[in-house]
Write a protein that binds this DNA or RNA. Structure first.
Length: 136
RNA sequence: GCUGCAAGCUAAGCUAUCGUGGCGCCAAUGGCGCCAAGGAAAGUCCGGACAGCACAGAGCAACGUACCGGUGAAGAGCCGGGUGGCGCCAAAAGCGCCAACAGAAAGUGCCACAGAAAAUAACUACCACGCCACAAGCGUGGAAAAGGUGAAAAUGUGAGGUAAGAGCUCACAACUUUUUAUGGUAACAUACGAAGUGGGUAAACCUUGCGUGCUGAAAUGCCACAUAAACCGUCGCCUGAGAGCGGCUCGUUCGAUGACGGAGGGUAGGCAGAUUGAUCCCGUUGCGUAAGUUGCGGGACAGAUAAAUGAUAGCUCACGACAAAAUCCGGCUUACAGGUUUGCAGUAAUU
RNA sequence: GGCUCCGUAGCUCAACUGAAUAGAGCAUCUGACUACGGAUCAGAAGGUUUCAGGUUUGAAUCCUGACGGAGUCA
């Protein structure tokens, strides 16, 4: 029986705790996909939380106005929402929990198509990492 | 009609699919319905509300403020008036714009260069006297009338007066302070009289009047979880360390398994504060020159907490400026595409 | 959200109780020295003191507003 796939991004699927985020920056690993930098941390599965939790940020350094920062965060969030489902299923199957944080490091407000493309690449990379750690 | 400048208002809409925050309902990890940023949400420049500490105050200091009246919860806001300055105009009247607009006759400081001198003015020239036979020169004194300067030079003109001169005296004029009278709530204006005229600077110190307790939602209260009632140093145990009292002193209250400092450890979750209030908008009524305000009727108002409004497609002559709430209000300031209204300037055509 | 501080040559800093030519080092340019370069020596250029008003005879300095940039809080 095939269920209709939903592209949700509710409260529980986001990183909410200040403590967790600080831990992620301190202990987690990272890689870059041109204008986006990705911090990630893989853990054993937790029954209370979903298998994939996510956060976004854009620095005040390059974007003075809150309008621009909000715009970037919304674009990344939208791109992430439409593409993260495969990774989520993979993690659930492998019984793992992943915290991810996207930071936008570019200097200009990007196009939606660019963000969509780069987010896809980043998620693929995360998927590969996931496979490696599961096999090891 | 077009172009430019200034000011006011407004701040694209609709449909479909997927998705986000809050509230309500169904009955439950989902579905349905409703609502979901701005005129500046910004800068944090003023003023409050509210909260905590204190509530026994007084003095000093510090900070702010400064023509008058009104408005309002309050203000360095706004409205009206006065005074002064600038502009339009040949001038007046009038109109417009601007003003931190108390005091320099309480005291102190500063005023480069130039100039004799920049503030109890004597360098040159002037006058008197003395030294000297006279002159020249020197000395003592008088005297602000003349002297290239400078932003600023001792109120201006005339007459009297004198050794020479001087508001030294007088007349007229200018300005300052002020008694009285009149008008005005008042600032102030006008008239008459009196006293006086040795600069400027208070956005230099300062003086005078008035005002201000300090700290800001990372405030604060409650619940949950966790630990260290351990270690080191100093002081003290009622003749009292220290704390409230967050600038200081007096005063006052509390005060013993105590207080302060150092190093180190733990927590950093939830609820309240928190969104409907001095609220805003529209219509109307009365009061007021106006800002504003009274009554009546109707309508509107997000509440997140790593932080919610987005993406895609289509249509509409314009492909949409500045820009995102974070406790809440009143003002000020700054940014702003396009549309629209009004005023001013220039220009073209027509009647 | 609140609070505090700072803007001077291309860079790092002076001059901040007002006084007229805004000064020093590095860097840049020109010349000398050298076969050439470096180093050295001599000289030059470079500033609307972040911007706009105001006070004053006079402002980098004092006052007000704007713009930009740092730091800080539990």
């Amino acid at each position: 029986m095939e269920q209709k796939q939903r592209y949700t991004l509710g409260k529980t699927e986001r990183l909410k705790s200040r403590k967790l985020i600080e831990q992620l920056f301190k202990e987690g690993k990272s890689f870059s996909v041109q204008p986006i930098r990705v911090y990630w941390m893989l853990q054993p599965a937790n029954n209370n939380a979903p298998s994939l939790q996510f956060g976004v940020a854009a620095g005040t350094k390059h974007f003075k106005h809150a309008v621009d920062r909000n715009r970037i965060k919304r674009l990344i969030r939208e791109a992430y929402r439409l593409q993260k489902n495969d990774l989520q299923q993979q993690l659930a199957a492998a019984d793992l929990h992943l915290n991810v944080f996207f930071i936008f490091t570019g200097k200009e407000v990007p196009d939606y198509n660019l963000v969509f493309e780069k987010t896809g690449i980043a998620l693929q990379k995360l998927s590969e990492i996931c496979v490696q750690s599961a096999s090891a």
